[in-house]
Design a protein around this nucleic acid. Structure first.
Lengths: 246, 246
DNA sequence: TCACCTCGTTGGTATAGACCAGATGAGAGG
DNA sequence: CCTCTCATCTGGTCTATACCAACGAGGTGA
């Protein structure tokens, strides 16, 4: 690279830089989930500093083209998982229908006092104990969502003895004869911190989507409340009232 | 401030810094939509550099506590507007029900070829011309969303002669006797760039939510397609199937 | 064979200083 | 009184450099 071409970068060089990486991604020179070269190497290659380089990478991250794993590096994002929070379908089936492979990992399953906000959503007094099930899920080998379920201890007295790495939907149906009915949920764009960030291996403060869902059975009784924390680049929320009419 | 207390900031000082600003916000020392002191002033006050200061501010921005306007400064975020993309309610009414004040500004209303993706959603061949209406909306005086509507030219031949700063929902009903029926939409977390960023007065690359919505009338005919770009900290998506059953 | 430790590399965070371009407000001119 | 111009301030971007802590690979010892 000559001094002249380096000069092209003098103003808003991170844009050029960003575009260069965009091209590499678009033309498939970088495969999905593959790690990018180290920041120092990229900075040198584009004749800039790490600060500027990281500025460009942040933009690409916000745009969902790349993601990073805490202290491990930057990786190429795959296509987004299409997710309809209104569907009763379980995660495994949903991913299979999109020709993708999912897996679930149980982090903990204990009895615990739910935060006041959760108790409120579950229409119970503050300080109520619930089963708290924490899990995380992967799609095509990548960690994409951390989920915290809060369930009634009286409705599901022995649920901790079941296999909790599978679908709770199926457990409800098969063991407790409960079907999903109405659902309500809330989507908030937030920064991932603390446990969700740690479990998803992303650095504290990474952008994410929080989805809080309250599920009811066919008679309107509240079944449980899920709090999901998604890597923002891994998901696309899609809802069609025609699908949910039935 | 002594040299000793400055040393407390030597490691991950942006966290301390972040917490300090969080406290200021929580205790109301900074009012909603009020401008924060300049970056240089804050950096000096917290005895750090602008880079580090901006790191802390970015975290708060991602968490939705503050937002920035391009080259104008940082401001305190208000509470999120609760938004249900399934409702037929118009924007004005929705905000009024939440005791907030809304206004709409027309940016342009022209005939234009829609991008291929939009033509696809509207079930028309690529290259089809539609009315393209661009608007932006404020809540309590703050710009929160940029919207691009694409409508059929044959269904609404004279819509450009109407008042386009009000509710399109109402126009459909009153002038064309059309009611909303099914709706489908998609939510994507993305980086705001180009026109949406410029119209929302946010710097290129600011994080936002894109909501693409396709509206149908009571007979299932496609009415229009809206592409909305929201400031991420200004909105909370909330849906309850019990509300939409009727 | 496997647990443990060491060490190089990487990302995470920080300092110090600089210039540019857009936004703003005060002052000049009509 | 209004409009236009210009200096000033602010955020936006950049260079150059440094240290720390975590990750991972490879070697060591039980």
């Amino acid at each position: 690279m000559t001094a002249d071409s380096a000069n092209e970068f003098t103003k808003r060089s991170f844009l050029t830089l960003e575009q260069a990486i965009r091209n590499d991604l678009a033309e498939g020179r970088l495969a999905v989930d593959r790690r990018l070269p180290s920041e120092r190497e990229l900075a040198e290659r584009y004749r800039t500093t790490r600060i500027t380089l990281r500025e460009a990478l942040s933009h690409l991250e916000m745009d969902g083209l790349i993601y990073r794993e805490n202290r491990r590096g930057w990786f190429v994002s795959g296509r987004r998982l299409v997710y309809n929070p209104l569907w009763r379908t379980d995660f495994q089936r949903m991913t299979r229908e999109q020709h993708r492979q999912a897996s679930t990992e149980l982090i903990e399953a204990v009895s615990a006092v739910a935060p006041d906000a959760i108790c409120g959503l579950l229409e119970q007094p503050p300080g109520t104990e619930f089963w708290r099930i924490r899990r995380r899920r992967m799609v095509d080998g990548r960690l994409v969502v951390f989920v915290e379920h809060h369930l009634s201890k009286t409705m599901f007295p022995d649920i901790l003895e079941q296999d909790l790495t599978g679908s709770l939907t199926n457990l409800y149906r098969e063991k407790y004869a409960l079907e999903y009915g109405d659902v309500s949920f809330e989507i908030n764009p937030i920064a991932l911190t603390g446990m969700p960030a740690a479990e998803l291996h992303c650095s504290d403060g990474t952008f994410g989507l929080q989805i809080v869902r309250v599920n009811r059975d066919q008679t309107g009784r509240i079944l449980d409340c899920d709090v999901e924390y998604w890597r923002h680049d891994a998901v696309s929320i899609r809802i069609d009232t025609r699908d949910n009419a039935a």
